[in-house]
Amino acid sequence: MATSIKLDEDLKDRVHHIAGLQHRSPHAVMREAIAQYVEREEARERFRQEALASWQHFKETGRHLNGDEVRAWLDSWGTEDEKSVPECHD
């Protein structure tokens, strides 16, 4: 699908400059930039949806872990005393 985009002169010049430094076309630089932006925003939205679902689950059940419990578990990763996933509690 062909799409056109209007860039102000400053941004257009910056894209062309980066493209020249990388021996790539401005088109390739813009496609990569848009792909990275979309991936980042999709990941951000997935995180937001997961957080909302977790919050809803907490409101319904009251089951949770606190920050200290999670940090202790994560800090144990890769050590001789690696802990298993902590159990949620009320």
Rank of each mutant, 00 (worst) to 15 (best):
R48W: 11
D75S: 07
G78K: 01
W73D: 00
N66M: 06
D75N: 14
Q36L: 12
P26N: 10
H64Y: 13
H23V: 08
D75K: 06
E87L: 09
V70M: 13
D13M: 08
A33M: 08
A72C: 05
I34Q: 03
L21I: 06
E80S: 09
R40D: 10
E60Q: 07
R46F: 07
T61H: 00
A28S: 15
G62C: 06
H23T: 12
P86F: 07
G67L: 12
A53F: 00
H17D: 14
A72V: 09
E60F: 00
R24Y: 05
R24M: 15
D81T: 06
V70Y: 11
R44N: 11
S54L: 13
A35Q: 12
R31A: 15
H16M: 11
E42W: 07
H27D: 15
E32L: 03
A28V: 11
R48S: 13
E82R: 04
A51D: 12
D81K: 12
R71V: 10
F47Q: 15
D13K: 14
H64I: 08
H57P: 00
H16V: 09
I34H: 03
F58L: 08
I18Y: 09
D81L: 02
K59I: 03
L65V: 07
A53E: 09
R71T: 08
A43C: 08
V70Q: 04
L21E: 15
E39H: 06
A33Q: 04
G20F: 05
D81H: 12
G67P: 01
K59C: 06
D13R: 14
H64N: 10
S84Q: 08
S84A: 08
Q22K: 15
H57F: 00
H64K: 14
E87Q: 12
Y37M: 07
N66I: 12
E50M: 06
E82Q: 11
V70G: 03
V70E: 03
F47P: 00
S76E: 03
D81P: 00
R24P: 06
E69F: 02
G20D: 14
R48N: 13
G62T: 06
H64V: 11
H16E: 15
W55M: 02
I34R: 04
G20E: 12
E82W: 02
E87A: 12
R71F: 06
K83T: 05
P86L: 06
Y37L: 11
P26C: 09
G20S: 14
E80R: 07
Y37I: 02
E80V: 02
